[in-house]
Design a protein around this nucleic acid. Sequence first.
RNA 1: GCGCUUGUGGUGGAAUUGGUAGACACGCCAGACUUAGGAUCUGGUGCCUUUGGGCGUGUAAGUUCGAGUCUUAUCAGGCGUACCA
Length: 936
Amino acid sequence: MAKEYNFREIEKKWHQRWVADETYRVREDETKQKFYVLNMFPYPSGAGLHVGHPLGYIASDIYARFKRQQGFNVLNPMGYDSYGLPAEQYAIQTGQHPEKTTFQNIDRYREQLDKIGFSFDWSREVRTCTPDYYHWTQWAFQQMFNSYFDEELQKAQPIAKLIERLKAEGRWPSDEREQSDLLMQYRIAYLGETMVNWCPQLGTVLANDEVVDGVSVRGGYPVEQKKMRQWCLRVSAYSQRLLDGLDTIQWSESIKETQRNWIGRSEGAEVRFRISGKSDEFTIFTTRADTMFGVTFMVLAPESELVERVTTEGQKAEVEAYLQQVKARTERERMIDKRVTGVFSGSYAVNPLTGEDVPIWISDYVLAGYGTGAIMAVPAHDSRDYAFARHFGLPIIPLIEGADVSEESYDAKEGIVINSPRQPSGSGLVLNGLTVKEAIEATKRYVSEKGLGRVKVNYRLRDAIFSRQRYWGEPFPVYYKRGIPTMIPEECLPLELPQVENFLPTATGEPPLGNAQIWAWDEVNRKVVDKALIDEETVFPIELYTMPGFAGSSAYYLRYMDPHNPKALVGREADEYWQNVDLYVGGSEHATGHLIYSRFWNKFLYDLGVSCQEEPFQKLINQGMIQGRSNFVYRIKDTNTFVSLGLKDQYETTPIHVDVNIVKNDVLDIEAFKAWRPEYETAEFVLEDGKYVCGWAIEKMSKSMFNVVNPDNIVEDFGADTLRLYEMFLGPVEQSKPWDTNGIDGCHRFLRKFWNLFWSKEGDLQVDDSDPTGENLKSLHTLIKKVSADIEEFSYNTSVSAFMVATNELGQQHCRSRKILEPMVALIAPFCPHIAEELWEALGQKFPQKGDRGSVCDAPWPQFDERFLVESTLKMPVQFNGKVRFTLELPADMQKDEVERAALAAPESQKYLEGQQVVKTIVVPGRIINIVIKPA
RNA sequence: GCGCUUGUGGUGGAAUUGGUAGACACGCCAGACUUAGGAUCUGGUGCCUUUGGGCGUGUAAGUUCGAGUCUUAUCAGGCGUACCA
């Protein structure tokens, strides 16, 4: 009886051992090179982990273990993004404090994660909702408040420098309030007026996706566009640096491209237009300066402050009506319903090139938030302007040779310019005959030389709205001293989240923090006190907003470097040792959120000298989503009888989702099914071959489809090593794919085969000190080469295949040699650490003279040696022109003439050369030789 | 609409980067051992076929002695984004 692979016992044993030995504790060690592996930390939801969540963690864990075996000092931490809406909603419904449910969920996550055998250093765990963590979120916010972005230096500077400059320029007001207002225009964290979706009944701002058809998704209350004073982060100031930084990091091209689009750099020109008959003027932004001779009207965004200035008495009523109409529509409605709407303001603008008057219109197709909120319309060469001109009967002037604008506009930036100008004009600028690109440059030059405007780069990236009317988030360390936002002294941080009885907005419409009684700042005693003491002299109200979800997740990677430091977000030494994240693994859904915000946040901290690297994440891998694979049973209409998949077409049936956990290889466990729901207790079945076969479909993994596979069950049935291996075997890490428990047997079988390499039929270790055969060495080194390369490239699925091949080969070769089997254990250790530890220990016990080798985590990664691998390999000969050419691969270090001789002498070539004449030989760089032959 | 991305057996997926397409695994078929198990082991398994061979990487052309891989066109799916002047 062979020794059984008892994974349950093995895994339990090593989980305990790892904790007892602190195997994964990592410390700064100057003698070793660092490597920082990081997973996007999870939000601990109440549903627990499903089998899709650990995919990225397993991939990064393999990489971390691999790097450790290569001799790196690897930081591989884990924590929780623990502020968030679900816990708060649950609190509103049940009265349970969100902290309680959050911590319960965290415990559940930890329990599940621990079963999978990750090499996380839990001593470095962070939770964004704990005061010693959000201390530094608040601190960073204060730093941003106390900084401004210097356009010339392109970096953040202390606000004091700005004050000095303003004083020197004589622009520093004496009034405190005016000072505050002025600085707000520069601070990186600032209070600003922004358009938001406001729902009066819910008393909160809603995100765009929380609003449908002008009413809130939750409750169905009306939502209006409202300008509100909100905390904002001046992310847009960093646009150019965020863009440039992309070229220095190894991220997938698609994520970089998404960020580039999001930042949306566009080069163009700002041009001033005078309002006809007035001394007033306004500025527009255009990327198509070449089309200025084709401007037939101007358009302003409805929210633009220009609207008031240009609206004439006669048009006032009509404009007012239009503004009302626009205001009632949400962003979403504007997106869905693309009707052309607009109103004439009554004024005209003067085209600075032609001197002609063109009407100024107001329309919501122009956005207030981009450029200057005003455009020059060139209907011939812009499809939106074209639609507008058509709708309101405005003239269309083509400016490009051969462009047919009778049906649609010609938007392409190519062709030869015409009609510019149509007749000799006073401007002296002639673009006719130039290409579009030349014309753009010529116009830009003209405009700036004549002082009509200037060359300008615009970015689409907007500042981030940084406040939320929520309870479960970081409180702002801010109080309002006679209405002026003032920072709570740095030494008094963290400002802890107060207790409240009620998590809903107050009766007066204040955010939930308005319910906190002990929530006022006593400036003299420097502490939080009862609101009742507010006196406008020394005791002031504290900010009621909280920070959004991305606040806590923007710099957590820095905190892992030095998680218990009470004096700083991260100590200088720790930061200089760990630098930045070498490998970051997480979903691509964060491309325009977290991955922008944390790059911004880190750049700011870099400017401050807190972080020594400008980019936080060197390499990024986006793991794919794991979809669910649902199973169906087919109930015959109006009965309680279920028919197997192959026979269902003979009946009229309805498919019903069935819990995938009671189905194996698409065969239904009938007893479990009867016990699943009371109504199925008396169910009857029409079987095929004595089995009930279920149908299946790929759907999102969710409770309602009964297709959620819990990793706990897999670990229970097959072990963590099999789960880890199978998740990797499923396909490329970066690809989305359905989970299919069918097939996991293959991985489990492999691990048993691997295990059996080491144990005799009697259950003894059957490893000896014999010399390996050439075959053994070839099998091993093929594997070393493949796995080493695959791990670097994250193609773990092919590594697993390679392990299967090597194991089969070594089994057939009856390999017993320690010189082969020991490296085999070291190779599999990153993938299947439990079985590797067990075997490593067994190998050590059998040969105690080798000494104590500790954990397999520190087993050196086997070195690949090409000598064992490369023999001459023949590629298939090909026929052409009555000749045959074939290719021979030879060892790399051979000289050119040597290659030729060896090739002709090789036994493989002999069988082709027999009775043939060698026409010529071609040595391809490297070690490949082509031999052209023809019949002698 | 725009941007990115992917199309290979019944299924998940390989292919040293231009060199015998389908590795490995699931599933399926046959056999062995068992005496019923959804266990283990061995062999087979792209499609068509008159068993000689023919056809095969979404489709259609092209480059090449040679194309899943390169070029062009085209079709289909996935993801992201949304009036950015």
